[in-house]
Amino acid sequence: MIILEQILNGVQFGLTLFLMSAGLTLIFGIMGVINLAHGSLYMIGAYAAALTAVRTGSVWLALVGGLAAAALGGIVIEFAVVRRLYARNHLDQVLATFALVLIINQGANMLLGRQPLFVAMPPALSGSVTLLPGLTYPVYRLLVIAVGATVAAGLFAMIHGTRIGMLVRAGATHRQMVRALGVNVALLYTAVFGIGALLAGLAGVIAGPITSVQVGMGEQVLILAFVVVVIGGLGSVRGAFFGAIAAGLVDTLSRAFLPTLFRQIMDGSNADALASGMSAISIYLLMALVLLMRSQDLLAEKS
């Protein structure tokens, strides 16, 4: 039972990572922009949802508020800053978007203070349900899994079944050709950036009741999201999905089971310390392995 519960935990963690990394990989794959400010959009989503929830008391308005703020933030960032960076090299992009991170964090500090915000869990979602005898699971986490899976399915359908998805796919592999065919690339880029921002905002809204809504919360997940993007291959949403699930499972399962495993071969306290160290680096180990084994693929997709 505990194994099943931990797998659920891993999938849930992976799906939240997916929401972040899907946007990141789209933006990188199609526009060739490394966007460090993606974590700030996550934070904007979480803050906007928290503030709307406090003002209106409505869960739905909070959801809408969070998504709208993040998408709007994304479009403003694209229009004001990122648009000027497409032709520049990655170092310039990192510099400019990192500056955005600092500005947005400091802005949030000045406007909203440094104290974390309280986000109430909707009462209907705060309990646990018994899935199987001996396996109870928080309702909210089940909802996170459902939302993540729905978004993933929706994104697949969009990318493989719609015209904008076709352009996105084409843009990821043959950018010059898309432009030569007369597609309004600027509009496409803004749309993709907006979708990415929306997903980051959704991740932020969802994270609100679970973690603490505070300045700098975005940077914590951003690093993991980048790892997922690398594991899944740059520019591939499907890769990001499997990468995120793999990362979520590896992280959760190693945190859960390495201590027991190590305790078989050494005494308790040392085993716990070593296992914690190992599980902390497990995602990065996974990334290193993937890079070693798939280095050609990754380069091929990038060029």
């Binding site: 891993g10 986490r141 679970i210 914590q220 997940v221 959760t252 945190r255 201590p259 306290s269 716990d272």
Partner: peptide
């Protein structure tokens, strides 16, 4: 039992199990 968690960890479900 003892568990150490990462400083950037936001999810404690594994530890709770």
């Amino acid at each position: 039992g003892e568990s150490f968690t990462r400083l950037d960890q936001t999810d404690f479900a594994a530890e709770f199990a």
